[in-house]
């Protein structure tokens, strides 16, 4: 399954001031198969296989939880903001409808 996984999370490289908001970009390889398409050769429905949730946590608290349908594009990109509080990891977890899970993090540095 080469075309799945490889989660990436990118945050600001330079230290932030406490209270500053920072853009976080995430990317993961995933087919995001909706379950609504048919195989052209045999007419069988292609089973649904998509990421259902993306959760971002920072400083022990949830920042955002995304709940997706199969209408989110293949290899989903997602960006959001976080408010800098103290130095520590921002952890992103993706879970798909087959129970597979990926986690990746970026370090938020606060002056």
């Amino acid at each position: 399954m080469a075309d799945i996984g490889e989660p990436k999370v990118r945050g600001p490289e330079k230290p932030l001031k406490k209270g500053e908001v920072a853009l976080i970009k995430t990317l993961i390889k995933h087919p995001m198969e909706s379950g609504l398409r048919k195989n052209a050769e045999n007419g069988e429905t292609i089973p649904a296989h998509y990421i259902e949730t993306l959760t971002a946590e920072y400083g022990g608290a949830k920042v955002v939880q995304a709940t997706w349908s199969g209408a989110v594009s293949k290899n989903p990109f997602f960006s959001f903001y976080v408010k800098a509080d103290k130095t520590g990891p921002l952890t992103v977890t993706w879970k798909d409808n087959k129970g597979q899970e990926w986690t990746e993090k970026t370090e938020i540095k606060v002056e």
Binding site: K62, T67, S69, A71, V72, P76, F80, Y81, K83
Partner: peptide
């Protein structure tokens, strides 16, 4: 007009600082 109209839902806490997201969707 998508087969399943709800594409995504995002739950935030104040820790987000601001609500500005970007994703890519199928239509």
């Amino acid at each position: 007009d998508n087969p399943k109209p709800l594409v995504g839902k995002f739950d935030f806490t104040p820790a987000a600082g601001k609500v500005e997201v970007e994703l890519r969707i199928k239509m």
